[in-house]
Design a protein around this nucleic acid. Structure first.
Lengths: 221, 221
DNA sequence: ATGGAGCTTATTGTATACATTATGTATTGG
DNA sequence: CCAATACATAATGTATACAATAAGCTCCAT
């Protein structure tokens, strides 16, 4: 995307993610154009894209609203992500190159450093975690899968999930990545798929616990 | 979408599906605008949508081209469809209402009539087949799944698949739908998922056989 | 009062002109 | 003769004006 479109897209997306535009709010193209300092044309383009990514929904009468997400919606998004990132991991295990494996290890080492400090560096975690998953997607070599997953992982709820991670969650995430690396090194697609699916499912419960007050059943040990 | 946008979208899509715009061809917005009798604005909106549906790809320098599909691309699309329609069937089995089940049966009965005639009515088959799968998607009650699948099932190759069906393929498709109905009636998600996955996988091989000259290995019976 | 018809206002849809960026070509310096 | 640069040409990106449509409001009739 080009200058003004990109500007409008990232700014509107930012307003939704930050909560400046609350779920359910109606949004008008002209107002957004003023906010972004561009004309309505690139704003409309950004809105169509945000709509396809489900940040925004449109009424049957063509009005745009900030999407709101029920618990079912949220679980829905995670189930799909689990399924598709699992598939990506399975495919990646069969196709990954040694160079990609090395890159993957480097990213996870960086994650390890970020989460083992006295005060974990969440920003660094997010950055390298993103790279880690992108390398897997690249190794999966399925443009269509990449295309579809991009629509899921950019969604507001998924984004906010990482905010609710505590130190233990971050470190477990790092360990699960190590499991994935082991599965990739052995080119074991089934293993990689299982680990990835569990990894995503775990993220869902972490989110649900933090945002919805649900507490896991007590563990009798 | 509104009048001119819809016009541009369906007309361009039609040109690609019919082969009037061959794979790899560069397409210019102004030329499309003339062809469709609208201005560039709605054409651009249609192009973005077709791009997201992978009918069109854009070069890194913003030029648009009709997408061409390798065998790997095609199998890729089918694998994703198999996965996602399988998931839809599993979810639908757990959620389907008796009213939806009745609708589904009515559609499949119509398919049965279309394929059992002396000369099968392929057009009627396509219409009711589409409805059949849409009802399942509706019963799956996952807007995100519906959203993502819509991008897959509208693609050129998938569309052309039905063209290569012979009478036997059409009738087998009808029988597989009956299996699905049985699974739904028993709310057996695992069964529904398996049948659906096989149904889609079969469609891939039918396409591959017809379009790529591949022949199945001889059956020793 | 209530409900609806018609007008007013607000918002989105489309066309067009202009700006910006890419591509191809010619020309010039080496 | 090759390569690189500058210029010409063509395509896409953006802004704005205008058109169409939906939402809201007033006022009249029942």
């Amino acid at each position: 995307m080009s200058r003004a479109s990109e500007q409008a897209y990232s700014q509107i997306r930012g307003m939704i993610l930050s909560g400046a535009l609350p779920p359910g709010d109606q949004i008008r193209e002209e107002w957004l154009a003023e906010q972004c300092g561009v004309s309505r044309t690139p704003v409309r383009e950004a809105l169509r894209r945000l709509e396809s990514e489900l940040f925004i929904r449109r009424s049957e009468r063509q009005r745009s609203f900030v999407a709101d997400w029920s618990l079912d919606d949220i679980e829905d998004a995670f189930v799909l992500r689990e399924l598709m990132e699992g598939l990506a991991a399975r495919r990646a295990a069969a196709r990954i190159t040694t160079a990609q494996l090395a890159l993957l290890k480097a990213e996870n080492d960086a994650i390890g450093r970020a989460v083992s400090a006295a005060t974990p560096d969440v920003h660094a975690f997010l950055k390298h975690n993103k790279c880690f998953h992108e390398i897997i997607l690249e190794a999966a070599a399925s443009p269509r899968l990449t295309n579809l997953l991009a629509r899921l992982i950019e969604q507001p709820v998924v984004w906010r999930t990482a905010q609710s991670y505590d130190v233990g969650d971050l470190q477990r995430s790092h360990r699960e990545h190590n499991e994935l690396l082991a599965a990739f090194a052995r080119q074991d697609g089934g293993w990689a798929e299982s680990v990835m699916a569990g990894h995503i499912r775990r993220a869902f419960h972490t989110y649900a616990d933090a945002h919805l007050g649900k507490k896991p059943a007590a563990i009798i040990s």
